[in-house]
Design a protein around this nucleic acid. Structure first.
Lengths: 202, 202
DNA sequence: GCAAGTATTGACCGATCGGTCAGCGGCCGC
DNA sequence: GCGGCCGCTGACCGATCGGTCAATACTTGC
């Protein structure tokens, strides 16, 4: 029975599932949700289209797994990298740099998630995903508020300042080329410097 | 005669084309390029699908007209609103506010243009569009460089600073709701204030 | 060796897509 | 009055889509 061999079976199955998710993320990131067919995914994996439906119920589930996974992991990845004893300012810098690092490392999943903004699957299920997204975005607002309370930041429209920070990070995918220019964490750090100190001469 | 969604009874071809472009922009903005079918556009206009092909060669041409038009107009709109005698700093502020104003006024076309980033038509033709986009982006870099030369800005990585400014403006479409909150030009102005002066306490 | 379960496949389905085409009807110049 | 033109239509096409299903290969417990 499958009891004793469950590890092996789960291992085989899990590897295949990981492969499907990985290839799907790459394709979604490159061609968008609607621009990627189940046939494309199957071909990229070197398997039949039917096998996709053996491991996933439908196309939406593949995408949802990628989007939810990357959104949850982004939050945890960034949260784990906030230095505990540091000032809010330094923690905000760490927030931005960690986001850049995550973006660089899991770029396909990031791109896939953000690419489907205009397609249906975004609004449909995705409730749990939005919860993690809200936590992530809440984090930056909390840090900004703490920086204000600590006197490190001047009084600000906190939601708008948060949006400025997130805009810089979230827009990176539209122009960032991994082969050339600065690595993403360094870009994030430079962004922090400009936003924190401002552009004007001192 | 059949009643249309919009009131266009006269057989004027130019008006009909404008109607098609307007409805298409709204649909592309809402559902994306792939998520909008020619049948959808025809239905929204209250006309037959065949008539679309009477006025346009294919779906791509409709989109290209919208995207090129809005990109060119954005540049001209913003360029015309840069105060001539002002300092580079004030001109950069005007650049951002004008972009917010354009975004607010021609939101559907803006959204349609940016939504198709992940679909094919973006890369296909669109050469002329990219020229205007490059001019627009070059403008912000020029203003930043002039501000540095005038001693108003500290020495900066100019392309990156330009990207920061453009990120704030370009990401607005992902969260901006026209019904509530600040109007877009005011948001752009607040962004400028934060980027120029920085977040830190003085 | 056998039964059971799982991974995997190709053939197939209805729906929808972008796009085509022959033709209809009203208006305008002659 | 009439012939050509233009805005306009519905019927239709091949391709592709997401998804289904019955059947096959392989593994594994007994």
């Amino acid at each position: 029975m499958a009891r004793a061999a469950s590890t092996v079976e789960a291992g085989d199955s899990a590897e295949r599932i990981l492969q499907i998710l990985s290839e799907s993320a790459r394709l979604f990131a490159t061609n968008g949700y609607d621009g990627t067919s189940m046939r494309d995914i199957a071909e990229a994996c070197g398997i039949s289209k039917s096998l996709l439906y053996h491991h996933f119920t439908d196309k939406d589930e593949i995408f949802a797994r990628i989007a939810l996974g990357s959104t949850r992991e982004l939050y945890q990845f960034v949260f784990d990298r906030l230095p505990e004893g540091a000032t809010p300012t330094e923690r905000l810098r760490a927030f931005m740099v960690a986001t850049g690092e995550y973006f660089q490392r899991y770029r396909w999943a990031w791109l896939a998630s953000t690419s489907a903004f205009w397609s249906d699957p975004e609004q449909r299920r995705q409730k749990e995903r939005m919860m993690w997204r809200d936590r992530y975005e809440g984090l930056v607002r909390t840090l900004i508020q703490q920086a204000i309370d600590a006197g490190e930041f001047r009084p600000l429209d906190v939601p708008l300042a948060g949006r400025l920070v997130l805009s810089a990070l979230n827009w990176m995918h539209r122009w960032y080329k991994p082969d050339k220019g600065m690595p993403a964490p360094q870009i994030a750090d430079a962004y922090f410097d400009m936003i924190f100190r401002g552009l004007r001469a001192e």
